[in-house]
Design a protein around this nucleic acid. Structure first.
Lengths: 236, 236
DNA sequence: CCACCATTCAAACAACTGTTTTAAACGTAC
DNA sequence: GTACGTTTAAAACAGTTGTTTGAATGGTGG
């Protein structure tokens, strides 16, 4: 359980490092993370968490207020740095475009999502890969608290992607841009999360979970989907 | 709670009608369905179910063996007819193709999924729309029992789609066909389930849940994505 | 050394969980 | 009428849940 050395090439002076946790709190967060992903919030008991973390039961309510607050902390610990990286990617792209050193096309915008997601999936501590799956649980389980935090603190992130994609697809209405972003992010999100419907049927020929392989297949798919000609409804 | 009249134009002689439930059992299934979707399996207590269904607590263990078996029954009640409809679509398409009355292209194959999914979403009882969301819960919550049932009884359904898509995309390797099917089904599945990531951030410009609107936008996206030129990895 | 703080610990709290049991009522078919 | 499958009712079962309590512990600064 050695903390990985921060390897970001640019320290990003304005980055809020976020709260620091004691060793006990960190052990709780790590244990809870894995269990929440595997079993879900409701099916994971505090006793199982503290047992896996080798800490006392009361430590959870001491360091975090409640089980729900613990879940929020587990989520926020990974989400905030990731979202900041997404913003940095968008900033970098727009700076390059402004300087005439890059073109703002669909692929460039999508790579601003793919690169942070790929970095997460390859996080050597394994926590990043867990987080992606945790995120998809949040999506379908619809946790009220997390949803409020996301829309309050990170709504502008979505706005940034929407704006950039709109510039890359000027021939589409803003309505259609929103749909393309919705669909495109959906594929990538669930691809990285490993939410494989075919696997449910025991018939997934998609080989395992190599993040680079995911990128290789998902990027052409999404770029083509997003760049599709204007939607006309095919005969049902 | 009036049972909708079966409106299938073709009775499909070989269709297994599945188990019939008493009125009490049906009321339990209906109440459980809504609660499982909204709260999840673990967070839904039998007492809440029986209270919503206005039946006695013991009725659950009488009609279904256990809570887990009830969940399976809730899932199977909607899944089986839907999967049979998918098979019927594939049969019909292949018959048409064999007779020279249709071409086996990507869109035709995908419509064999879209039409049943659309019918579900428009189910006037509302149960179909609930089921799609329940299905996505099963996907991320990874219920062992349901997974076993699906791979045992319905694995061939996936094989059928894979085969058909492979014929529609003869220039792709079977590996790439599997990836395209995985990604394409993923978009459609989560689109119909309403798993909207942008909504999590409170910034979904995607107007509501009109199933026809979903089809209108998702079909061109998926067809384009699936028909994308062979994947080469763009520079990270 | 003592006081102070944060932390840990075992124990207990009331509430809720799925499930079972016992009993009594209901309608229908033989 | 008697038997049977169904349903209701109320109660109890043994476990587990999140949370709280109060005492014990540990190290740091005065």
């Amino acid at each position: 359980m050695v903390e990985p050395v921060k390897s970001s090439p640019l320290p990003a002076a304005d980055a809020d490092p976020g709260p620091k946790y004691s060793e006990t709190a960190t052990r709780i967060l790590d244990a809870a993370e894995g269990l929440f992903v595997e079993l879900g919030l409701e099916a994971t008991s505090l006793r199982l968490i503290t047992q896996n973390a080798a800490v006392n039961l009361a430590a959870v309510n001491y360091h975090f207020r409640s089980k729900d607050a613990l879940f929020e902390a587990v989520f926020a610990r990974r989400f905030a740095p990731w979202a900041r990286e997404c913003l940095r990617e968008l900033d970098a792209l727009e700076a390059k475009v402004a300087a005439g050193k890059a073109v703002l096309d669909v692929e460039a915008v999508m790579m601003c999502y793919v690169r942070p997601a790929l970095a997460l999936s390859k996080d050597p501590s394994g926590g990043g890969a867990l987080f992606v799956r945790l995120f998809s649980r949040v999506l379908v389980e619809n946790h009220r608290q997390v949803r409020e935090t996301l829309s309050r603190d990170w709504g502008h992130l979505v706005a940034r992607y929407t704006l950039a994609l709109g510039r890359a697809l000027p021939q589409l209405s803003s309505d259609e841009v929103a749909w393309r972003l919705h669909l495109g992010l959906s594929v990538m999100f669930h691809a990285f999360a490993g939410n494989d419907i075919l696997k449910l049927f025991g018939r997934s020929a998609v080989s395992a979970r190599d993040p680079d392989l995911i990128v290789k297949h998902v990027v052409p798919f999404v770029v083509a989907g997003m760049s599709a000609p204007n939607g006309r409804h095919p005969a049902a």
